[in-house]
Every structure is written in C-alpha cells, then in structure tokens.
C-alpha cells in the first residue's frame, strides 16, 4: 500500500561524481520490494513543485532503512543532496510493481544489465536473487570511470563486469559490446537503464525471458495524471501503460521501444 511518511535521513554521501547514496529510516520500508521506487518531495515548499521518483537500491527491513542512489544534476536532486543526517524528508511510497524475484527457476542464473543511474535497483534485486540461491551475473555500462559505483558490493554477489563509453573503466563501448564478448549463459535477464539500452537488449536476446524497468517524466506518481504513458506493442486489449503505477518494471515485449 502506498503511504506518505516523513522519513529520517540516517546517512548521505557522494559515492561518485554527482552520484549520492542516501539512506532513510521509516515504517514504509517494511512494504518495499526490489524494483519499486519512492516519490520524494525535496522541499516542504512548492518550489521546486513536483516530487522526484527515485528507485530503491537497498532495503534493510530489520533496521527500517532504505537506501536510494541518485544523480544530483537538476534543481530537485541538488536540494536532496544537501539533506543532513537527522533531517526529515517527505516520502510517498513504495510505488509501482518491481522485479519478479521468483520468475527464475531454482538454482538458475540471472543476468542483470544496468546503465548509469539505472544500476541501483539491480542491487536489491541481486541481493534477493542470491538469497534464493540464484546465481547472478552483473553487466553495467557507464559514461565514464568517475560515475561508476558499487563495484565491491556487486562483486560479493556475483561476476561483475563494467563497460564505459570512453573506455576509462572496463571494456570500451556499450553493454551489448561486452555481452557479445562474454556470451553469458543465463535463464532470465533483468534490466534498468536508458531506452536505447533496453531496446538493444530486447533485440539481443529475442529468445530469453526478460524484465525491463522504465523511466519517464512523472507527475503524480500514482497513475492519476497520465504524464508517464508508454504505448504497448499489442495495441489491442490495452493500448498504453503507465510507467508509475503499471510499471516501472514490465516483462519484455510489453512496451513499444
């Protein structure tokens, strides 16, 4: 159930260039699942006006803590980056349908492909897959070395490979270049990142089941405003889906890419 809560900042740090890791404490953590997001109001005033949808990177139900990782580049996220330990933040969540952790056979292998700021939700997913005994392979693409993060965290969970557009870390190129080279064996792929990456991945693995997490400009975050609409491929039963309330994760093939 979606709830509104004033959560408390327990940690915040810059973990890469303009990339911040923020940990918040509150009751709504108990309801959270990997792939869902929280809708954060960065100021109690109406300037900036809208909430910021930010994906959930790490859930710690015992401590009642959730960690989000975001890039501080716009007006809203820059304000969020100034929050100090002990500050209150107005959070609406958890929102949306996350990654299906049980969509993979026991003892199977999952391929997790992330691009840039699309990598964070794959961390909680990987943790939960590993907890089920699933082997995970991580393939992440970034623009350049100084915006990469969580290499150690992912490495403890499974094979982790980085690719950068400028070749400053790992292979040079895009995730599909690296996948071409690695030829990983797996049962299901999970992905979050920019649209061109999702499109390339869907074409790259036409015969594998996969789940894609989408990003779109949002208004309300609960499905009422019709800002974050994507067209469906079938155009029959349903001609559109809302990224916020129907997604943000969809099985591959549902959304027109």
């Amino acid at each position: 159930m979606i709830q509104q809560e004033r959560m408390i900042v327990v940690r915040q740090s810059e973990i890469a260039h303009h990339i911040f890791e923020l940990t918040l404490q509150g009751q709504i953590v108990q309801e959270m699942n990997p792939g869902q997001f929280v809708h954060i109001r960065v100021s109690d005033s109406f300037e900036p006006l809208l909430r910021r949808p930010i994906s959930i990177a790490n859930i710690n139900k015992e401590a009642g803590e959730v960690t989000v990782i975001y890039r501080a580049e716009g007006r809203g996220t820059s304000i969020l980056a100034t929050k100090q330990v002990g500050d209150e933040v107005d959070v609406l969540g958890p929102i949306g349908n996350g990654f299906p952790v049980d969509a993979i056979p026991e003892k199977g292998t999952a391929l997790l492909v992330g691009g840039g700021i699309g990598v964070p939700p794959l961390y909680e997913l990987s943790k939960q897959l590993n907890a089920r005994g699933i082997r995970t392979i991580h393939v992440f693409g970034f623009a350049t070395e100084n915006v990469t993060f969580y290499e150690d965290q992912f490495s403890t969970l499974g094979d982790t490979h980085f690719v950068t557009v400028d070749g400053t870390k790992g292979t040079k190129g895009f995730v599909t270049d690296l996948l071409e080279e690695l030829k990983p064996e797996f049962d299901v792929f999970y992905s979050c990142g920019p649209l061109p990456m999702l499109r390339a991945l869907e074409n790259f693995y036409p015969d594998k089941p996969g789940y894609l997490s989408f990003e779109e400009r949002m208004g309300c975050g609960i499905g009422a405003c019709f800002a974050c609409i994507c067209k469906t491929t079938e155009q029959q039963e349903k001609d559109y889906v809302k990224v916020c309330s129907d997604g943000p994760v969809f099985p591959k093939g549902v959304v027109q890419l």
């Binding site: 109406f46 400009r217 800002a227």
Partner: peptide
C-alpha cells in the same frame, strides 16, 4: 490516446502539461 511524451515539465512554482485529453 493523448499527446506524445514528454507531457509534463516543471517550471518555477508550477508545471506545464500537455496530456491531450487522454
């Protein structure tokens, strides 16, 4: 079906929308 996205844009103390009567 409404307009293509992006359909909303934030502005100082406000927002623009062009949902297109979906």
């Amino acid at each position: 079906l409404g307009n293509p996205t992006p359909r909303v844009a934030e502005t100082p103390a406000g927002m623009l929308n062009a949902i297109g009567l979906q």
